[in-house]
Computed example of a mutant assay.
Amino acid sequence: MATTNHISTKWLGNMAFESNNPSGHSIKIDIAKEDGGDSSGLRPKALMLSSLAGCSGLDVASLIKKMKLDVDEFHIETIANLTDEHPRYYDTVTIEYHFHGKNLEEKKLQRAVDLSIEKYCGVMEMFRRFSELEIKTIFHNK
Rank of each mutant, 00 (worst) to 15 (best):
M1L: 07
M1P: 00
H6N: 14
H6R: 12
I7F: 12
S8N: 15
T9V: 15
K10M: 06
K10P: 00
W11N: 12
L12Q: 10
G13A: 09
G13Y: 05
M15W: 11
M15C: 11
F17G: 05
F17E: 04
P22F: 07
P22C: 11
G24S: 06
H25A: 13
S26H: 13
I27D: 01
K28C: 06
K28E: 13
K28D: 04
I29D: 08
D30Y: 04
K33P: 03
S39K: 13
S39E: 15
S40M: 10
S40E: 07
G41V: 06
L42C: 05
R43M: 12
P44Q: 00
P44G: 08
K45A: 14
A46D: 14
A46Y: 04
L47I: 08
L47R: 01
L47A: 13
M48T: 11
S50C: 13
S51M: 04
S51P: 00
S51N: 01
L52N: 07
L52T: 05
A53K: 01
G54V: 00
C55W: 00
G57F: 03
G57W: 01
D59F: 01
V60L: 02
V60A: 08
V60K: 00
V60T: 01
A61G: 14
S62K: 03
S62I: 05
L63T: 08
I64L: 05
I64N: 01
K66W: 05
M67D: 15
M67E: 15
K68V: 11
L69R: 02
L69I: 10
V71M: 12
V71Y: 08
D72V: 12
D72H: 12
E73L: 15
E73P: 03
E73C: 14
F74T: 09
I76Q: 04
I76A: 07
E77C: 13
E77W: 04
I79W: 04
A80L: 02
L82C: 14
H86E: 14
H86W: 10
P87Q: 01
P87Y: 02
Y90I: 07
T92K: 04
T92Y: 02
V93E: 04
T94R: 06
I95Q: 11
I95W: 03
H98N: 15
H98G: 12
H98L: 09
F99Q: 02
K102C: 13
K102Q: 15
K102W: 10
L104W: 08
L104G: 03
L104V: 09
E105K: 02
E105R: 04
E105W: 09
E106C: 05
K107R: 01
Q110E: 15
A112F: 03
V113M: 05
V113K: 04
D114C: 07
D114P: 07
L115T: 08
S116G: 10
I117L: 01
I117G: 00
I117R: 00
K119R: 13
K119Q: 07
Y120G: 02
G122T: 06
E125P: 06
E125W: 13
M126R: 07
F127E: 04
F127M: 12
R128P: 01
R129V: 05
R129S: 05
F130V: 10
L133G: 05
E134L: 10
I135G: 01
I135C: 00
I135V: 05
K136Q: 03
T137G: 11
I138S: 10
F139H: 07
H140K: 06
H140A: 09
N141G: 13
N141S: 15
K142T: 14
